[in-house]
């Protein structure tokens, strides 16, 4: 390498005007052993710079704690919710079908059931009219009881009269 160019570069270097490429050139020049004595101080500097970069390494491991996310727990909870909701809706909700959606057999069963219910219902009506007769009778009965009270009142009054007569006779 031309010695002059190195000197020029060094001057620029001292003024902080060299580019990174030029600095790398200088480093390369000064890491070889035969350097002119009066540039010894530069040699020491550049050797220091390149050795520290190669040797001073960070070798320790960094304990990286992963933030344990609770997401899996929450997923299981959500899954449970979805499952129970599914069971609930299939068991109790959404089971209503219109008559036309039923199969033939189901329609037949349904018709029969309706018939039976209506039969029971009509008998029940009849029973109710009979019960009305009972109601009338009990009504009359209570009227009769009311009248009977009059009778008992009368008999009490007569008893009093008899008692007073008996007293008078004793005196």
């Amino acid at each position: 390498m031309v010695f002059n160019s190195i000197e020029k570069l060094l001057e620029k270097y001292d003024n902080g005007e060299t580019t990174i490429k030029e600095e790398q050139k200088l480093k390369a020049y000064f890491t070889q052993d035969d350097v002119v004595p009066h540039l010894e101080s530069y040699r020491v500097m550049f050797q220091y710079f390149s050795t520290t970069k190669q040797e001073d390494l960070y070798t320790k491991d960094v304990p990286l704690k992963t933030k344990k996310s609770n997401i899996y727990q929450w997923i299981s909870v959500a899954a449970l919710l979805v499952l129970s909701l599914g069971i609930f809706t299939t068991q109790f909700g959404d089971n209503k079908k219109t008559y036309s959606e039923l199969t033939m057999q189901e329609q037949k069963d349904y018709d029969q059931a309706v018939e039976v219910f209506s039969l029971v219902g009509s008998k029940f009506d009849q029973g109710e009219s009979n019960m009305a007769a009972f109601g009338l009778m009990s009504n009359k009965l209570s009227q009769g009881v009311g009248k009977f009270e009059h009778v008992s009142e009368f008999s009490e009054a007569t008893n009093k009269m008899f008692k007073s007569k008996k007293k008078k006779q004793n005196k």
């Binding site: 001292d14 902080g16 005007e17 500097m45």
Partner: peptide, 26 residues
């Protein structure tokens, strides 16, 4: 400003180095 600071630092280092060279090694 960076250039200026850098230049100062480099010059200081070399100045001190030549001092030690004069008194020390050579």
């Amino acid at each position: 400003a960076i250039r200026v600071a850098l230049s100062r630092a480099r010059k200081t280092i070399r100045e001190k180095l030549t001092k030690t060279h004069r008194y020390g090694i050579q």
